[in-house]
Simulated assay, not measured.
Amino acid sequence: MAYPDKLLHEDEEVVQHLHPHWLTVFWPVVRFLLVVGAASFGTAMVPTGRQQGLIRLLVLVVALALLAVLVLVPLLRWRTTHYVITTHRLLFRTGILARRGRDIGLSRITDVSFRQSLWDRIIRSGTLTIESAGDGGATVLRQIPDSEGVQQLLNHMIEEDADRRAQESAGHLGEYYGPWRTETQQPL
């Protein structure tokens, strides 16, 4: 079972599954090109001689270490960060080796706001701040693609969740109390 489906309850469905905005991987890609270019140039510039193989190997090891730190880690961080909106809750998971997450029931969310700088508006990204009932404090989700649209979607899902809960509650009350009027009562 694929992520996030393995986290869902029986009657819960994924409405939207997001990662941070794709531009968060822009600089790691630029760094990849720079490191590969510099390593290629460095190995080509090594003078011929007894130490040529050793120096080229050293350049390659340094390039691989830089690629791991400057490229691989940010790409994995982007890939392992999940923002999932379901019909019942908001799930937030992040982390490569050590994981961190938070689930917020839609019924507990009291406020959803977004913030965009001029650059964020140009690239259609932004920051969501989600206030919820309880002592967990505000949850801040950065680099959300289409943050304004996600904020509107969350508000819509909160309303739908409230309606669903009200209908379930009314159905349970009807089962508990039974019909309000018996067959023997006649209207006036």
Rank of each mutant, 00 (worst) to 15 (best):
P74C: 07
L97G: 12
V150R: 01
T87S: 14
L66V: 04
F114I: 00
V69D: 14
Y3V: 02
I85W: 13
I130T: 04
R99N: 10
S40K: 01
R115L: 06
P74L: 08
Q143E: 15
V73N: 05
P4C: 05
G171Y: 07
F32Q: 01
T24W: 13
T182Q: 14
H19K: 07
Y177E: 13
L18N: 08
F32H: 01
T80M: 12
F32M: 08
R56L: 05
L60Y: 15
V46R: 08
M157P: 02
T87V: 07
I104W: 10
A65H: 10
L97I: 12
V14P: 01
W180R: 10
R142G: 07
L75Q: 06
K6T: 13
R56Q: 15
P187M: 03
V36F: 05
L67F: 09
L34V: 10
F32K: 00
L154K: 03
T139K: 02
S107K: 00
D161G: 04
Y176L: 02
V61K: 01
I55M: 11
V15H: 09
V36S: 13
P20N: 08
I144W: 08
T24G: 03
E10H: 05
I122S: 05
Q143V: 02
L70M: 13
F41T: 05
Q167V: 07
L72F: 13
T129N: 08
L57M: 11
G42H: 11
Q16L: 11
P28Q: 09
V62M: 11
S113L: 01
H82A: 05
P74N: 09
F41N: 01
F32T: 05
V84D: 14
R56E: 15
F41L: 10
V25C: 09
E160P: 00
V150M: 07
T81S: 11
L97K: 05
L141F: 04
L57K: 02
L153Q: 10
Y176M: 02
K6F: 15
V15E: 15
H19A: 03
R108P: 01
A133Y: 14
D11C: 00
S125T: 06
P20R: 02
L57Q: 12
M45L: 13
G37K: 02
R121N: 11
L153D: 14
G137V: 06
D161F: 09
H9V: 03
Q152W: 06
V84R: 02
R56T: 12
S147G: 03
R121A: 08
L70S: 12
V112C: 04
P20Y: 12
P145T: 05
G134S: 09
S113H: 04
T184R: 13
R50D: 15
Q185A: 11
F114Y: 12
G137W: 13
G137R: 07
F41P: 05
R100F: 11
G105L: 09
Q152G: 01
R99W: 14
I85M: 12
R181M: 07
V36Y: 06
E159T: 08
T43Y: 13
L106G: 01
S107E: 15
T94I: 04
L128T: 03
F26E: 00
R164Q: 14
V62W: 13
R31A: 14
T139M: 10
R79G: 12
E168H: 03
R124N: 13
P47V: 03
L106W: 06
W119E: 05
F92D: 14
L54E: 15
